[in-house]
């Protein structure tokens, strides 16, 4: 046939002799502007299930314009699968814009609340940890405190590591929300 070793394709459809880039599994942050209508969340969530894409987290809320909602979706995958995720999201009719904030400079936050076991001896220590994370104690009982912590995923997880020793009774997290930094809006950035 052709010169040298026969060419093949990788299971991803890319020719072996072409450079396969971005093949590693990693985390991607997508900001999805959608019409604020009934059923949109289930269209988006259903798409992920049907195409076997993994959602790490999904946060959704109304935007400055009540006709639109913004979803921040954290998805696990590689460049090829996430490219498909973006294209398939764009095919959902009420989806207005999909922005990939993964490589862009963006601010990422999530909110978490931890119900941490305590007794009179440990309560002070927990509050000290909370202070150093700029976290707030939002409820206090004799055997447990509820601490609210806001920050990027690393900060929230670092806080969790610190209070684990006291016994975490319950946790709730909002999932990541992200906005592009600077003057440009999220919908003007990304790709």
């Amino acid at each position: 046939m052709s010169k040298g070793a026969p060419t093949r394709r990788l299971p991803t459809g890319v020719r072996e002799d072409a450079v396969a880039r971005g093949a590693d599994e990693t985390e991607y942050t997508l900001s999805v502007l959608v019409e604020n209508k009934p059923g949109v969340l289930s269209r988006v969530a259903g798409l992920f299930t049907r195409r076997d894409f993994n959602i790490d987290s999904l946060a959704v809320g109304e935007t400055e314009n009540p006709e639109y909602s913004r979803m921040t979706i954290v998805v696990e995958g590689n460049d090829k699968t996430v490219e498909q995720v973006k294209k398939q999201l764009n095919k959902v009719i009420p989806v207005i814009k999909v922005s990939d904030l993964t490589d862009d400079d963006s601010v990422d936050r999530e909110l978490a609340m931890y119900k941490v076991a305590c007794d009179p001896e440990t309560r002070g220590e927990i509050m000290q940890i909370a202070n150093s994370f700029r976290a707030n104690v939002v409820d206090m009982g004799s055997n447990a405190v509820v601490v609210e912590v806001t920050g990027d995923t690393e900060k929230v997880e670092a806080f969790e590591d610190m209070v684990r020793q006291f016994g975490i009774k319950e946790t709730v997290r909002t999932g990541r929300i992200s906005l592009a930094r600077g003057e440009k809006t999220t919908d003007e950035t990304g790709n």
Binding site: M1, S2, P6, R9, L10, P11, T12, G13, R15, E16
Partner: peptide, 16 residues
């Protein structure tokens, strides 16, 4: 759409 019934095994589909 390069359906699997058309391509057969992806690795040896139009490899060159």
């Amino acid at each position: 759409r390069f359906d699997d019934r058309a391509t057969g095994k992806i690795e040896s589909f139009a490899p060159h």
